[in-house]
Design a protein around this nucleic acid. Structure first.
Lengths: 345, 345
DNA sequence: GAAGCAATCCGAAACGTTTTGGATGTCTTC
DNA sequence: GAAGACATCCAAAACGTTTCGGATTGCTTC
């Protein structure tokens, strides 16, 4: 069906070996033969069979990325941007990117990682949204499968990662609201099974404490990272008596949902209540009002994670195995202005 | 390094052939041997080498998806949902999904398709956002490479696709606004190099015409599908004198950007001006006010496209090679109420 | 007791590459 | 004119799997 190296060799009147070496640019083939082979190859439209090359080279030149997806209607701009990042960087290094989707901690996910770690399915993996006691990381470490994670983990396992210091990030947000005079600040946390959930929650707790502000237990609720989840949890917070004067939401998507709930309560964001998100997805600049948030360079993180993985696979020394990015606060109108702190508590 | 079939065979005391057949469940191996082989395999942690299997079977069991991405900060929720759809469906059929990203009509894109079409890189491709005179489709048809597209095309080429009838979809929107009494209805079009840009623009034109409403040339502007683009184009429309009383925007992302511009002009959406989008991304239910739009089941379309492709690859008869989905209008608050038609023109 | 048959196993080829380890011939060099 | 150096080529093995076409054994059957 397809034209193979043997065909090209026959056409050029040389052996398969010579044809191979001619195309690969080895020195032990004369300029004239090289040319003849090249001509034959282009004439016949020869494309090397990647599978055969991979079998021979004992490497797949492929990276794996297993998206942790929750349910069907899965529409998170994070993943589009992240995949674009790793995809472009992978292409720059002549790697392919294999993507699949599995629910976190599902049996299917376990099997997918199992399969990836052995059997030469891919040369390395990219892991995102690391979890507390992450079984994926444990498995990959145990099997010695190359990988780089976007996100730290707890425990003694040492592995390469890129992460944003979201503890500090949320701290910036909290301090920002405190400086504006807010005292009753609530927090819609990402799932605390996720490492960044832990970090962001801690950032909230620590900064409140550092300012000597007490936290009511019901100021902390946990959402599922979707708009719907954010809306529901915000609804819950708004029913408190007295309600919080500011909300910090664990990611922008939930924050957008929360804004909706606030507005449905007839409250004006930036005046009656302040709100801040996390991620700085492009949309957050276009909400009404625009959302105060913490920037996270998803595309660049994707590229960096991928570049690190390629280095590991090729056993090149890694400049740094642990990258922690400093977050920057993006203040927009959803912060509102200063409020009088006196009648706050 | 990895444990191969030869190792398993040796351990079980049989030939490679028998080991292979035992694991594959052939009938010509005794129950006892089969068991011994299976035991050896699990004990040694054997995973078949996919590359070798692929070379032998002369198929990759892999599907390809080349994302058309514009620029770096690329964050379109469409893609995460679509990839989740094809990814899950592919997994259900034991196919892998290879993803890469290239700018539309770039040299890199051309090469990627070229490579895919020959050389057994993947067994088939999924094409989205079909373009007028789409070079990708022409190439794939010419090479006889299996593919299914999300989106129709023009020309005599016949190929399998799934598409939403967005001409009708935009028609629903236009009629909806006309029924509310609007007469000066503007349209922010998707790029008309894209087929769905053409369809949506036509839907606007036809329905306006069908209602005997003239279209001012400057009511039609073309945006780039991003929020930013939508905001810019809306800005342009709002500067018209008189400005439109309703805007139909070619996709939700741009609509969200447009809403921002409208609000910055101090206008109230649903009262001073109506706006409608297209796609019904989850976010559109959470904007302020919620956005009237046309639903498009991206996840399901992804699944369906993928299922069709798998059928084609395995030469199974396709129930229907051309699927055209009927759109449904989702009316939300951004539509506003009836306006008096008299003082409109 | 030879022929036929089923059950069970295996050697070897094949998939399309790359690479190892020569083989062959030509040209210098003394 | 023999010995080494060099340029150019190639046969065969290897990568790990599947499968084709037997081979072997033991059991029926007449």
């Amino acid at each position: 069906m397809s034209v193979t190296l043997k065909d090209v060799a026959a056409r050029a009147g040389v052996s398969v070996t010579t044809a191979s070496r001619a195309l690969a640019g080895y020195a032990d083939v004369s300029a004239e033969t090289r040319q003849r082979v090249a001509a034959a190859a282009t004439e016949m439209g020869y494309r090397p069979n990647v599978t055969a090359q991979r079998l021979q080279k004992q490497r797949t030149d492929t990276l794996g990325f297993i998206m942790p997806t929750f349910g069907p209607r899965f529409s998170d701009p994070f993943f589009s941007e992240f995949i674009a990042g790793i995809g472009n960087e992978a292409a720059a290094h002549n790697y392919d990117l294999l993507v699949s989707a599995h629910a976190p901690d599902s049996e299917g996910e376990r099997q997918a990682y199992e399969r990836a770690a052995r059997g030469g399915w891919v040369d390395g993996l990219i892991v995102v949204r690391t979890r507390v006691n992450d079984p994926r990381i444990q498995l990959l470490c145990r099997q010695g499968c190359p990988f780089v994670a976007f996100g730290r983990s707890v425990g003694e396992l040492d592995y390469p990662y890129v992460d944003e210091d979201s503890l500090t990030g949320v701290g910036l947000l909290v301090q920002h609201f405190i400086d504006l005079g807010h005292r009753r600040i609530a927090f819609i946390s990402p799932p605390t099974t996720l490492m960044f959930g832990q970090h962001r929650l801690q950032g909230y707790r620590q900064t409140m404490a550092a300012n000597g502000l007490p936290i009511q237990p019901d100021w902390i609720v946990e959402g599922d990272l979707t708009q719907r989840g954010g809306a529901e949890k915000a609804e819950q917070l708004l029913r408190l008596d007295p309600p919080p004067t500011a909300m910090i939401v664990g990611n922008d998507l939930m924050a957008i949902g929360a804004m909706r709930s606030i507005q449905q309560h007839g409250l004006q964001i930036g005046k009656d209540i302040a709100i801040g998100g996390f991620d700085d997805i492009p949309l957050s600049a276009y909400t009404n009002p625009p959302l105060t948030t913490v920037h996270q360079p998803i595309y660049d993180i994707g590229r960096q994670v991928c570049a690190m993985l390629v280095n590991i696979i090729n056993r090149r020394p890694l400049p740094t195995a642990h990258v922690l990015l400093t977050p920057t606060l993006i203040v927009r109108e959803s912060s509102g202005g200063p409020v009088s702190a006196l009648n706050e508590l």
